[in-house]
Structures are given as structure tokens and as C-alpha cells.
Design a protein around this nucleic acid. Structure first.
Lengths: 209, 209
DNA sequence: GCGCACATCTGAACGTTGTCAAGATGAACT
DNA sequence: AGTTCATCTTGACAACGTTCAGATGTGCGC
């Protein structure tokens, strides 16, 4: 047997089953959707017995957690990328929002696993919220740079949460067929997304007193 | 046998199994959460055999659709109620948002079934979107009354969608433990919700050019 | 009132799933 | 070499969604 040489203290029998399982899960996810993802199916796809995964994940849920974790990392990358491509600082915020929604649209099954895991734990992943260069901080920093220096820290935090919630809501609803007319009228999905995000202000302006 | 007399052309053997099944499902849902809801369990709770539901619903999914439908009706009632209780027209919009999120918080399992069904069909229920006094129209009308008469119809539509997305996003995320600090700092959940909704404007203001 | 047709419910079955316990297998360390 | 231990397999179990053949009762035409 010529295994690829145990570079780290990880591989044993299979090489790196944990990794293989996560990748098999992502493959099944994008191919057949979240409803078709079974632990047995993942094991089958990875070429091991149905009980093998239990030596790497305590649960089916823990496998999904791992998949979701990778999804959130990819999301953070997509957001950073979008911000770096923004034409100016006023555009950065909208770009972030659009990038968020488009990530969800491009990886619908993955995004669904991500949000399901979050809701099951009543929390977004901590690294996403706490780390210095987390997605959460990226949004907050962008808000500051775009002209919210005057705001109190509390304002800033609330605005960040507001932005995140709006992006998540739009991500889950932007595919609704009832919005097809609006998209056509505006000339595409991007215009629709930007339009909705911009009109959050109009909506918010009529509130409070 | 003294059945409650066939008021309509509905009841046969059981009386009204369809209704009984939906109620059994809602009972299980609120007691044990969405993950514990099985078709067999619902049948058991209703006192019938595991195959009985298939004469009233083609699928487990169709049962959930029916449950979700009732949920959306309850939501619409809650929104109307909140609007009628608003102190002034400027307060109505915020009240609607808070009512939406609090409905989700008060019926978490039901709300989850509702949004899962929506996502599976890539659509919100049509009656919620189209009917004259639907929740969607309630939001739009409120926007008009609160001072958006000048806006174009397109603006109005986009603002309505924006409001809905924001409410949905906040509904799904407001329970996250990462926000507990903010809630405490603001003195309660209501203040947190209102705060986030109001800061949607601050977030939106820094967008576009 | 009788019998027919049909909606409704039951019982048993099939394939699939998540999970577990007991044993086989092979790598690393002594 | 032999021991130890993580890893993987085999086989089993209960629960699930779903289907089908058959029992059961309801309403309708006669």
C-alpha cells in the first residue's frame, strides 16, 4: 500500500475520512439538494460503511455543522472579495449585500444547511461574529468607512445587525416567484437586489417618531 | 352513534380527520419542535393508523403546507391587530415589524414550518401576497399612510419587499445568543427589535451614491 | 328498505434512515 | 514481537414515509 505519507498526525486507515466525508456531503448537497442528504448516503459516496462516520462525528448534525462551518468560511471570503472590488466606499456596502445574497443564490443547498445549523443552535458561528476579520466585523468596518463615524458604538452595532438581518432575509426570499415581475421590470436580478437594499432606507424612514 | 351532525359535506367516518390531523400536528410542533414531527406521530396523536392521513394529504409535505397555511393566517391577524393598536401612523410601521418578529418568537416551531414550506416552493403563499387585505398589502398600505405618497409605484413595491425581508431576517436571527448583550444594554427585547428596525435606515443611508 | 358505489380507515409490508454494540483490522510504539 | 488503540465493518434495532389489499361504514338510487 502506498498511502500519501502521513504528513500530519491525521491519517490512519482511510487517509482522511473526516475530510472525505465533508466533501462527499457537499457533493451530494449541490447535486441533489438538502433533503437528499443522508448520513448513509454520504458514507456510501465516500466508500465506507454506514457506521464509519461515527468515529469522526458524534451525530449527523455534527457532520452538517462541519459542512456549514466551511460554508461560512467561503461566505467570508466572498464578502472580502466583494468589498475589495467595490468602486468606492459608498458602493462597498451595497456590494457586500449583493455579494451575500448572490452567494446564497449560487449555493442554495449549502446556504440552507448553514442557516439551519445556525437556527438549531440559536447562534451564528462564533468565529463569524467575534474574530477580528470576521464577516460581522467586515460589515461593521464598512459602515464606519462609509460615513458612520459619528454614530455611537451602540448605533453601529444595531446597524450592523440590521444589515445582516436584511441580507439574510433577502437571501432567503429573493428567489420567490412573486418577485419575478419586479426583476423583469428592473432589468435583472442585480438591479432587483440593489433596489431592495436601497429601499430599506425608505422603509426605515417612515418609522419611529 | 351521535356524531356532531354533518353540517357540511365533509365528515365521514371520523368526523373530520383532516382538521384533527392539522391540530395534532400543531400540538406536537409546539410541544416537541419541528424535528420531532412525524406523519406517524401525528396519526398516533389523532388516534388513527399510520396510513390514514394519506386519504387527506398526498404527502407529509402537504400536511405541513396546511399547517403553514394556518400559520400564515394567524400571522396576518397578528399584523392587523398590531397596526390597529399603533399610537400613530409613524408608529404603525415599527409596530408591524415588531409584531412580525414577536409572532415568530412566540411560535418558533410553527414559523419554521412556515418558512420551510415557503422556501421549498420558492414562494410565499399567494393569498399572503395577492389578496386585498393580505399581509403584504397591509405593509404596503402602511408605508403609503406613513408618508410615502410621493414615491413611485416601483419604489413602493421595493420598499415593501425590503420591509418584509428585514422582518423575516430579524425573525430568524433575533434569538441568536450573540445578541443577548445588546438586548440587555437596551433594556429588553422590544427595544432591541425596534432599535434594529430603526437602524435599517442608517445602514441604507450609506449605500448607493 | 336494499344494494351498490365509493370514500374512508386498518393491517401488514417494503425500503430507507439514524444509531449502536461487538468484533475485525491494521498502524504506531515499546 | 506483541500490545495498544484508533479506525472501520458487520449486523442489528427502532422509527420513518409510503404503498397496497382488504375491511368498514356512509350516502345515493332503486
Amino acid at each position: 500500500m502506498n498511502k500519501p505519507a502521513p504528513v500530519e498526525s491525521r491519517p490512519y486507515h482511510h487517509g482522511d475520512l473526516r475530510r472525505a466525508l465533508i466533501e462527499a456531503a457537499r457533493r451530494i448537497l449541490e447535486a441533489d439538494g438538502p433533503a437528499a442528504l443522508s448520513l448513509r448516503g454520504v458514507a456510501r459516496e465516500a466508500g465506507v460503511s454506514p457506521a464509519a462516520p461515527y468515529h469522526h462525528f458524534k451525530d449527523k448534525g455534527e457532520l452538517l455543522d462541519a459542512v456549514a462551518h466551511e460554508g461560512f468560511e467561503a461566505l467570508a471570503v466572498a464578502l472580502k472579495d466583494a468589498k475589495s472590488k467595490a468602486v468606492d466606499v459608498k458602493d462597498a456596502m451595497a456590494s457586500l449585500g449583493v455579494a451575500y445574497v448572490k452567494f446564497a443564490g449560487a449555493n442554495p443547498a449549502l446556504y440552507r444547511v448553514m442557516s439551519d445549523c445556525s437556527r438549531d443552535k440559536d447562534a451564528m458561528p462564533d468565529h463569524l461574529h467575534d474574530d477580528e476579520d470576521s464577516a460581522y466585523c467586515t460589515v461593521r468596518n464598512t459602515l464606519v468607512q462609509a460615513g458612520l463615524e459619528g454614530a455611537t458604538p451602540l448605533d453601529l452595532e444595531l446597524a450592523t445587525v440590521a444589515a445582516w438581518c436584511a441580507a439574510h432575509g433577502l437571501a432567503e426570499m429573493s428567489g420567490f416567484r412573486q418577485f419575478e415581475g419586479l426583476k423583469k421590470e428592473l432589468g435583472g436580478e442585480d438591479a432587483f437586489l440593489r433596489g431592495v437594499l436601497e429601499h430599506l432606507g425608505m422603509f426605515a424612514k417612515v418609522m419611529k417618531g
